[in-house]
Amino acid sequence: MNTERFRARLTGACRGAALLLLTLVALASLLPLYWMATGSLKLQQNAMSVPPEWFPQHPTFQNYQKLLFGSKPVLRWFLNSVVTASAIAATAVFTSTMAGYAFGKKRFPGRSVLFGLIVVTMILPREVTLVPLLVLMRQLGWVDSYLALVAPFICYPFGIFLVRQFMQAVPNDLLDAASLDGAGEWATFARVVLPLARPAIAAVGIFAFVSGWNEYLWQLMLLNREEMLTLPVGVSKLVSSLTSFDMGVAMAGATFAFLPMLIVYLAFQDYFVRGITIGAVKG
């Protein structure tokens, strides 16, 4: 009896210690974001103080003033990122919903081959396509344009995969009932499939928006003109690995680029979880 109680207490204590450790690790994981946000309120001499200021002693918005109304068109970069990520999300939703529905619910010759291509593309490194894409964009005269920022992401393999997984779980009776009622393919899609697939569609839109916002390499390669830069590409030039830079302004830039992502995350937390779990390969 006594040993059992002792054992229960011991496992209880172990669990408690583990949870404490977990909480510490979680706080450490958030620390860089805290450091960025508070750093954006520090002037250079405070940012460089040793020992560091855990709470900004003299918080100021000067860095944001310098950032937004300085020599760089930061508000334009913000606008560019909003336009790019929104357009990527919209086109990804459009193409993924239709293609995912076809792959999930229709039988047609070549289905497994085409779907296999889509799955393989999720694994293949995009780096192989980057140089030819850039050449293609030059030929089309699309360098430094929104079109070129969006075009490579119109087909969003992960989104197609996600909608297809979701559609496969939808019972056929629902769709058959609609077509028995005499509804055409398009009407069935618009009136039955779209409302049913709403959670998957939302997840595709959110993932596409976030990945469009954070798509760095392609934007970095493609963009030359300063007013066409996206926010992440633009603000990343505020830091330098070789020379010293204004930490406060850099952190203001980073915070500014992070805020839209924070809002998206807080507003759509559940969709992230659902999208990730639907999107993982099952069996």
Binding site: F94, M98, R107, L114, V128, T129, P132, P152, I154, E185
Partner: peptide
């Protein structure tokens, strides 16, 4: 059914062919 499926696939696969498959082939060739 097949015709409908191809129409639903068309936007995604068209964009796929031009902006992913073609550059991939070009990349290997290059």
């Amino acid at each position: 059914e097949a015709r409908a499926a191809y129409l639903f696939l068309a936007p995604a696969m068209l964009a796929y062919a031009v902006f992913q498959l073609y550059p991939l082939a070009q990349g290997l060739w290059l």
